[in-house]
Design a binder for these strands. Structure first.
Lengths: 85, 85
DNA sequence: AGTAAATATCGAAATATGTCGATATAAGAA
DNA sequence: TTCTTATATCGACATATTTCGATATTTACT
């Protein structure tokens, strides 16, 4: 599952958001679900775990929730990994 | 389990090797086992998995097998992780 | 109020991982 | 050759992770 990777370049990986017209808040869950090939519940579960550990930040706008990378925490996590390895 | 981390600075983490007198080939499995608090079979299993994926390199000398970090592969792995994240 | 779309939650099943004890193998020492 | 020590392998079990379908919740639209 390459969700975090996809979120690096949303315009490259996903169709445009009809309502919003931009990716400033990341990508809506529906698109991630559709691209993933997994079930909606599985993806929702993934996304909420990524939220819980702080690697992505959700923004709800109307019916949609957009998910964007939290670069700060991702970098901190990478540093932690490189300390462990 | 911080085996890879321990192997970064063997002189700091382990007693000296009686027979060898240095850590040029890394640290013997026995010391890693003793420090770990896990069973010998578990540690041997860990070590062989780390070998299989190329993150450590074993050197058998007499009765002992010494394990050292494979910095090249560790760095490649870190890069791969940072691409995925 | 009623319906539809996006997302979240719950419980279950399948699979993977971590860990062990017992046993095997390899090498040096007696 | 036999014994001891270091390491590897095997089979089993417990726990964790992945994934699902069903259902609940939230929000907008009719």
């Amino acid at each position: 599952m390459d969700i975090l990777k996809w979120l690096k370049q949303p315009e490259k990986e996903f169709p445009p958001h009809k309502e919003l017209g931009h990716f400033n808040f990341g990508v809506c869950g529906q698109f991630i679900y559709e691209k993933s090939g997994l079930s909606q519940s599985t993806i929702s579960n993934y996304l909420s775990q990524l939220q819980n550990v702080g690697l992505i930040t959700p923004t709800r706008i109307g019916k949609w929730t957009y998910f964007q990378r939290n670069e700060e925490n991702i970098n901190a996590y990478l540093k932690e990994i490189s300390r462990k390895l």
